[in-house]
Design a binder for these strands. Structure first.
Lengths: 212, 212
DNA sequence: ACACCCATAGACCACCCTGGTCAACTAAGG
DNA sequence: CCTTAGTTGACCAGGGTGGTCTATGGGTGT
């Protein structure tokens, strides 16, 4: 795909974003190359000139996204933070920064991971498993379990906390849907997010350990 | 639709289930009447003989499901239970029973509520809003907030607990996917569910109030 | 000025699936 | 034997699919 990679960056980005958006919203089968080229503002022919087929495009996107996730997201997460909830707070912040730069990467990866009905070529499969492993390590490696109350199973507490955070993020998504991303006041939602985290700390950590 | 309602119950059920499954999985637009009739084991013509159009079928299903949710689910929930977590436990049990009898009702309602891009005829819209109101009342009416620790916002605690439970249920769904519903040992999962609930009680309730 | 070349657009292809219709058939009841 | 209601699947026009190909620019070297 050197053809594609010799384009000006702007155009590359436009095409990648259009394609990621379409695949993220519809999944591989239901995604339409017609819509992709229209959204990207290029002729139909070009898409098949750059990439040879819909499938190739999809796999190119997958590799591209995994690169970004590993190099621009995982790379920046501070794994020396031993406080589980703080670590999650930190990862949420980093993730948000990445998302500001690459709007549809997480959407695309998300729907890919959900409906993993597709069978990938071996090298992508391997790369994906590696990424999955890495992601888990990032969350759980080096966590200080002694912060948690003694009377609850920390494994279960981990999950409860993650589900809580996912729940908040999902609710936020539906609350904000339709609104322009540019200038909705994010700070107020971060504030709210932190309040939830504080409650989680008060609830799951030993008394006196929930201070920041 | 008297035509349809004069069929033997078995056949009605088969058709309704096929249709609910298809709509639940694909949404209204992407759902295929061809697949529905094949799955239901009837000729294409019959579907349009019973219901006049795809749209009509969809709205019939919606009314049908709302009836079931209200009369067979909401009706059975014990709203005298003032302990929030116990109430959720109870509703989960009732819901599971209903689901055993009407496999796709909740799936159908779920995807309907998610992508509510469709505009309904007024009477269905009204009925849906009523159902939504009722559902909320069922969760929050008559809850004894004094069970909760004083140092956390009960509104937020409500949400954290609901997100936690939804998280568990979702994880369970992916863990069990593909397995035959008939004889996977449900008890072991209920057990696990109760353990999570106990943790939530220990975490969010005042000390000494978490006993059953 | 000409020839070459590659980037580009979009009309076009064969194919597939769609919601919906309809003529033909069956079976029951009088 | 006629009527009527239930039932089927071939069929329809329309629209969307991934992918191809021809025609057109616009540059560059000569």
């Amino acid at each position: 795909m050197e053809k594609f990679e010799n384009l000006e960056m702007d155009k590359q980005q436009k095409i990648l974003e259009s394609a990621m958006k379409e695949f993220a919203e519809k999944g591989f089968e239901q995604a339409s190359t017609n819509r992709i080229v229209k959204e990207a503002g290029i002729g139909k022919g070009m898409l098949f000139y750059y990439f040879n087929s819909k499938r190739d495009l999809y796999e190119y996107l997958l590799a591209y996204c995994m690169d970004i996730v590993v190099n621009e997201y995982f790379q920046l997460v501070d794994t020396s933070e031993a406080d589980f909830i703080e670590r999650l707070r930190h990862t949420a912040e980093v993730k948000m920064e990445v998302q500001a730069k690459h709007k549809y990467v997480f959407n695309f990866m998300g729907t890919f991971m959900l409906k993993k009905e597709e069978d990938l070529p071996a090298h992508l499969q391997k790369r994906y498993e590696e990424l999955y492993r890495l992601g888990n390590a990032l969350l759980y490696e080096g966590i200080d379990t002694s912060l948690f109350r003694n009377d609850i199973d920390t494994e279960k507490a981990f999950k409860l906390i993650r589900w809580s955070i996912e729940g908040y993020q999902n609710e936020l998504l539906v609350r904000l849907e339709g609104q322009k991303m540019t200038e909705i006041d994010l700070d107020v939602y971060w504030q709210e997010f932190y309040e939830y985290l504080d409650i989680l700390k008060k609830s799951f950590y030993k008394e006196g350990e929930s201070g920041r």
